[in-house]
Design a protein around this nucleic acid. Sequence first.
DNA 1: AGCAATTATATTGTGCACAATATTTTATCA
DNA 2: TGATAAAATATTGTGCACAATATAATTGCT
Lengths: 160, 160
Amino acid sequence: MKNHAPGADGRLQDDLLTLDNQVCFALYALNRAVTGRYRPLLAELDLTYPQYLVMLVMWEADGRGETPRVSEIGERLRLDSGTLTPLLRRLEQRGLITRRRSPEDERVVTVALAEAGAELHDRARKVPERLLCELGMDAAEAGQLRDDLRALLNRLEEST
Amino acid sequence: MKNHAPGADGRLQDDLLTLDNQVCFALYALNRAVTGRYRPLLAELDLTYPQYLVMLVMWEADGRGETPRVSEIGERLRLDSGTLTPLLRRLEQRGLITRRRSPEDERVVTVALAEAGAELHDRARKVPERLLCELGMDAAEAGQLRDDLRALLNRLEEST
DNA sequence: AGCAATTATATTGTGCACAATATTTTATCA
DNA sequence: TGATAAAATATTGTGCACAATATAATTGCT
């Protein structure tokens, strides 16, 4: 019935092949749980979670006087144009950002923070603090977890 | 222009409101990176990542002679019928599972592992090991991370 | 028995993710 | 110069997630 002997090897692999033993499921479930905690906070700003991440990038860029390309936002967030193009279109329709083709290189679209987007920054300031409270974590604990996750992310991105 | 004094409090909150300081972004990015590492492995089985998770539940259930309800799969994976119904339909169309209305309670749909689904189990056995290799982690490191993530998930799910 | 509330699943609609491909523009080089 | 390759974004199509709602069946109450 099976290719494996019922004993040693097969059983070990079956234990690995269990939902509760998957790192990835813990990651997947926690990510959705955390996103769910954001949702009501971001709903006050009328933003989805990925839109919020884009706005974080835009607020930072604007603070440095920059107007990043679509591809630069994508590198930052690890998202491609298939995801970003419609998302940015929605943010533009709401007047939070503007998009324009670069005159020097017509292939490039640069994204700039618009007036309403800058105003939204003020209203977003309390989100991180409120979220930590939602998560029941203090800043130190969150920082530690963030660093652990980042370290693994870096390792993954550096390897083939 | 702003409600905040430009100094102390505002600046502290701005630091928190930075992409690289977000726990959530690290979680979000890592989750997608890990899922990306699964993709080629699961493509060999012609499964998406959520489909693989459902199959994990089904293989476990089948090992105990159980045919779980849609709602039980949902509780396990923290997914609702809006996600599961079409996903299960696709798995059924491929002959990996069967769905039938319970005769005792016509509201309930029970899901059972089909022949092809059981056969797929054999081919899936090496996935966890190969993934750890992909991630460059050993079992101990993965186990530690899994427990950390689970602990936080449990805390979140126990709190309001 | 009969009606309201509850339960289980399905449906609809929106917004990501991501692969594959298309389009337009720029760079390269024979 | 003129074909060709490369680059940047957009489009299309599939499959999740999840909110809101619908449908149908069961339970509880009077």
